[in-house]
Amino acid sequence: MPEGDAVWRTARRLHTALAGSALAGADLRVPALATRDLAGRRTLEVVPRGKHLLHRLEGGLTLHSHLRMDGSWRLLTVTTGAGVTPDHPATRRHTVRAVLWTDSALAVGDSLGMLDLVRTADEARVVGHLGPDLLDLAFDRDEALSNLVRQPGRPVAEALLDQRNLAGIGTIYASEPLFEHRISPWTPVGALSRHELGSVVDTARLWMVRSCRLGPTVPMTALARGPADGWLPGHYRVFGRRGRDCPRCGATITEQPIGEAPRERVISFCPTCQPTP
């Protein structure tokens, strides 16, 4: 599932291409929206909220989408003598759920996990359950930490992944900061000091902001000693490296599911650097 930084970059691309322009047309391929006509409405802005996208339109409407596991928004430039039209091979896939176009851009929402049209004033209906957004300039760190400690017996990785506590963290930004601070994903939240928990959140936020600015890379830290360790800048140290050597201690990195369905996720960790309490 795309994480907060990837959704932020998607929102920025859509905003750059569509903001200020009137929609020439919109094809919303979900039954509840199939007859809605958005043509002529100007895009005001496209903004992220955690892992959600809010496409705000003139007239007080918001097109809300969530990418879930496999979704994406693709931007295509189709120049013809008559301008942009939705007649493009990318729009013909049976998994496409939304097609938006202006005089200069074509946006295709494929395999979207959610697609809703709500009044902008009622956006809380679709994102009001989310905790503080790590990529919000006004991120409320104290509220996020207070949310995390409400269930002191909960494994810390599971709590970090719960978007009701704080929004934007997925398995990458749960796995990597916990490895950075040598904390087992199964450590109960209540066993960590507020300073320890805050350090994990601060690291996740720092790396997500850096990813938004510089691209999806994990920054080099003092723990990385060079190519001999099998880890280079831009490569994750535990995420997606099951069965490979830990770049810090040489033990074998493993992955295990955490949480209960439907929120179960797979977390990556080093069992030696991050011993289960």
Rank of each mutant, 00 (worst) to 15 (best):
residue 54 L to A: 10
residue 166 L to E: 02
residue 266 V to L: 07
residue 122 D to L: 15
residue 264 E to H: 02
residue 264 E to L: 04
residue 277 P to T: 04
residue 188 P to T: 00
residue 168 G to L: 02
residue 263 R to F: 12
residue 24 A to W: 11
residue 35 T to I: 07
residue 74 R to I: 01
residue 261 A to P: 03
residue 241 R to V: 12
residue 164 R to P: 01
residue 245 D to M: 01
residue 128 G to V: 06
residue 182 R to G: 05
residue 90 A to R: 13
residue 250 G to R: 14
residue 107 A to M: 11
residue 146 S to M: 05
residue 25 G to S: 11
residue 155 P to D: 06
residue 53 L to V: 08
residue 41 R to Q: 08
residue 39 A to D: 03
residue 168 G to H: 02
residue 188 P to M: 02
residue 157 A to P: 13
residue 252 T to H: 08
residue 57 L to Q: 04
residue 230 G to E: 12
residue 38 L to A: 12
residue 104 S to Q: 11
residue 193 S to T: 15
residue 161 L to G: 04
residue 272 T to P: 01
residue 103 D to C: 00
residue 181 H to R: 05
residue 205 R to M: 05
residue 25 G to C: 13
residue 77 T to W: 00
residue 54 L to D: 02
residue 244 R to Q: 14
residue 107 A to L: 12
residue 248 R to M: 12
residue 250 G to T: 14
residue 240 G to N: 06
residue 201 V to K: 03
residue 137 L to A: 13
residue 5 D to H: 15
residue 170 G to V: 13
residue 11 A to S: 15
residue 258 I to N: 02
residue 78 V to A: 07
residue 80 T to P: 01
residue 48 P to D: 05
residue 146 S to L: 06
residue 152 P to S: 09
residue 183 I to T: 11
residue 134 L to G: 01
residue 83 G to F: 00
residue 96 V to C: 13
residue 187 T to K: 00
residue 193 S to D: 07
residue 177 P to H: 04
residue 131 G to M: 02
residue 22 A to W: 04
residue 70 D to P: 01
residue 212 C to W: 08
residue 3 E to D: 12
residue 269 F to L: 15
residue 72 S to G: 10
residue 20 G to E: 14
residue 193 S to Y: 04
residue 229 D to Q: 14
residue 53 L to I: 06
residue 172 I to V: 15
residue 78 V to W: 06
residue 112 L to Q: 04
residue 10 T to G: 01
residue 87 D to P: 08
residue 60 G to N: 13
residue 203 T to R: 10
residue 214 L to A: 11
residue 72 S to D: 10
residue 270 C to K: 09
residue 239 F to M: 09
residue 149 V to Y: 08
residue 5 D to E: 14
residue 72 S to I: 10
residue 251 A to C: 11
residue 98 A to S: 15
residue 203 T to Y: 02
residue 117 L to Y: 13
residue 142 D to Q: 14
residue 152 P to I: 06
residue 53 L to W: 02
residue 254 T to I: 15
residue 77 T to S: 00
residue 216 P to N: 10
residue 109 G to R: 02
residue 152 P to R: 06
residue 229 D to E: 15
residue 121 A to P: 04
residue 260 E to Q: 08
residue 155 P to E: 09
residue 61 L to P: 14
residue 175 S to D: 09
residue 79 T to R: 11
residue 44 L to D: 06
residue 132 P to N: 03
residue 216 P to M: 06
residue 268 S to K: 10
residue 17 A to K: 13
residue 59 G to Q: 08
residue 48 P to R: 10
residue 155 P to C: 06
residue 218 V to C: 05
residue 240 G to V: 06
residue 7 V to L: 02
residue 166 L to Y: 03
residue 22 A to T: 09
residue 14 L to G: 04
residue 265 R to G: 03
